[in-house]
């Protein structure tokens, strides 16, 4: 009896955990930021899946669906965010995974943020953003 309760409790905690995919969807290997974030998300109690380098937007969407994540944290430093981030969103929608939240970050000029927001990509954090700010934002958009 006690064991079942423990398992139930465990399943309950598990489902409370945010599952997040961290990825750089393009030809961009500036991975210092994402590797720091992976550790920070883990230490904040999330289950973190890191895509590894150089996935295409389509591959990012597939991993997100296969891994059944709640959110995807995307980062690019190479100026291709306006092309690549909305593409991830497009593939998710095509595969009927609208509920997965997409959070953006990297070297994103102020004037690009609105365009990304319009495409359903939130956050869009620039350099110098504290890890806490990003984690708080994820918790807010995932609403678990």
């Amino acid at each position: 009896m006690e064991r079942t309760a423990n398992i139930l409790k465990w399943e309950f905690t598990m489902s409370q955990k945010i599952r997040i995919l961290v990825a750089k969807p393009g030809l961009d290997a500036h991975d210092r930021g994402v590797l720091v974030l992976c550790r920070a998300f883990r230490d904040a109690g999330m289950e973190v899946i890191y895509s590894g380098l150089l996935p295409t937007p389509e591959q990012v969407a597939s991993i997100a669906i296969d891994e059944d994540v709640d959110a995807i944290a995307l980062s690019l430093h190479n100026g291709a965010h306006l092309t690549a981030f909305p593409e991830v969103k497009k593939y998710l929608e095509e595969k009927g995974a609208n509920e997965i939240a997409i959070i953006g970050g990297g070297i994103i000029p102020e004037e690009d943020k609105e365009e990304l927001e319009k495409n359903g990509i939130t956050g869009n954090f620039g350099p110098g953003t504290s890890m806490d700010t990003i984690i708080e934002h994820i918790k807010k958009v995932v609403k678990k």
Partner: peptide, 17 residues
């Protein structure tokens, strides 16, 4: 980036970069 990775400008992976 495309040059650094050895992709031509007309490759799919180079789009936006």
């Amino acid at each position: 980036m495309p040059t650094l990775y050895g992709y031509d400008a007309d490759n799919d992976r180079s789009r936006g970069e």
